[in-house]
């Protein structure tokens, strides 16, 4: 009888954070690495705070001051936790110089990696020989081994894989690139579109009941509070707007899948991901509240522990489904699983 655990090596957990407090909480809950976004004030003033340097919108999902960035990096140094800065939007020649400057500041302050997808940025940063690792964001939409060859030649050391890949496809990619680290999303992000092939704008919605109707873009805490937006008609990401579709088959899909407000998840598939060569498990949700981020890390850590201590896959999945309900308040649903067969 084989009494070895299904998951022999624990993959590392990568958590989103927006402050040193969140970083500390994430590590306490079991994160091995963290990542954050940042919009420097000067960039925010010139280009706005939405969908500019990364796809996560507004101040809520980003560090917006140098002081916060520095205190976070001091904490990460104390705890020996690598921090990646997400600069994963596709840029433009107008924005690129500002973002290169941000990455230089990040490297000087002790940041360990940049998560990116823009080729011009990658080339520009490599030329500067900054002491940074380069992680290729899910926004690069890498679907084949030749694309990994391409980015590896440009200096990428880790690849975050698209959610739409199948396990055999992942295994082929990892096996052919032993010197590259592979990371995969395991919680929260669930857009029907391929992340790197979506041109919908990610703005800030102020519609009642949306996540961002809470504090996010306060320009002043004094006498008269004002909140600014480039588009006051904006009511949500393209993928959520499309839920109002007149296409009957799309409506049916939405009713079946999208209206269930549950985190998408790969906790039941961690052993398959690890077996396919994925060493890092990414939790999405930079814009979530601090308590939700901590709960997410705790859930994924417990799921990893389940796979690490059992020889019974069915039992692990059953336990993880119970843990999911405890963590997120509702039973999980197969429609929310990552890495499903496409057809």
């Amino acid at each position: 009888m084989n009494d070895k655990p299904i998951l022999r090596i624990r993959p590392k957990i990568v958590s989103p954070v927006c402050s040193s407090d969140e970083l500390r909480n994430a590590v306490e809950m079991g994160a091995n690495e963290v990542y954050c976004g940042m919009i420097p004030p000067l960039v925010g003033k010139r280009f706005g705070y939405d969908d500019i340097i990364s796809r996560r919108q507004g101040r809520l999902a980003n560090v917006t001051s140098m002081e916060t960035m520095k205190s976070m990096l001091l904490e990460s140094s104390r705890l020996h936790i690598p921090v990646a800065l997400a600069i994963n939007s596709h840029l433009s020649r107008s924005l690129l110089p500002h973002v290169v400057g941000l990455a230089e500041t990040w490297a000087r302050a002790g940041g360990s990696a940049v998560l990116l997808s823009d080729i011009a940025l990658l080339i520009a940063l490599k030329r500067k020989a900054l002491p940074l690792k380069y992680h290729l964001s899910i926004m690069a939409a890498v679907f084949n081994t030749a694309a990994i060859d391409f980015y590896a030649e440009l200096g990428v050391q880790r690849v975050v894989l698209p959610r739409e890949l199948l396990f055999p496809e992942i295994a082929r990619m990892t096996a052919s690139h032993p010197s590259i680290e592979f990371e995969a999303l395991v919680l929260h992000d669930r857009c029907p579109f391929i992340d790197g092939l979506c041109g919908f704008y990610h703005g800030t919605s102020f519609a009642p009941g949306t996540a961002t109707s809470e504090p996010c873009t306060s320009s002043s805490r004094t006498h008269e509070r004002r909140v600014y937006s480039n588009n006051l008609f904006y009511t949500g990401h393209g993928c959520s707007i499309l839920l109002n579709s007149t296409d009957a088959s799309h409506v049916q899909y939405c009713e079946e899948v999208e209206h269930k407000n549950l985190p998408a998840c790969a906790a039941c598939q961690l052993s398959q991901l690890a077996e396919a060569g994925v060493g890092f498990l990414k939790i999405a949700g930079r814009g979530l509240r601090a308590t939700d981020k901590a709960r997410s890390v705790s859930f994924v850590r417990t799921a990893v522990d389940q796979w690490h201590c059992t020889t019974d896959a069915a039992k692990a999945r059953s336990t993880i489904r119970r843990l999911y309900q405890e963590a997120f308040g509702q039973p999980c649903d197969d429609s929310k699983c990552y890495y499903q067969a496409g057809a």
């Binding site: 280009f47 020649r93 080339i123 509070r225 600014y228 937006s229 480039n230």
Partner: peptide
């Protein structure tokens, strides 16, 4: 509290950014 939601006119830098393709950078 409530806050006044106001329109922020886009800067010329933002408008240019929105019209450009990431491919159209010298490095790429």
């Amino acid at each position: 509290f409530t806050a006044r939601l106001k329109h922020c006119a886009p800067s010329s830098a933002l408008l240019a950014h929105l019209r450009q393709s990431p491919l159209d950078c010298p490095q790429t």
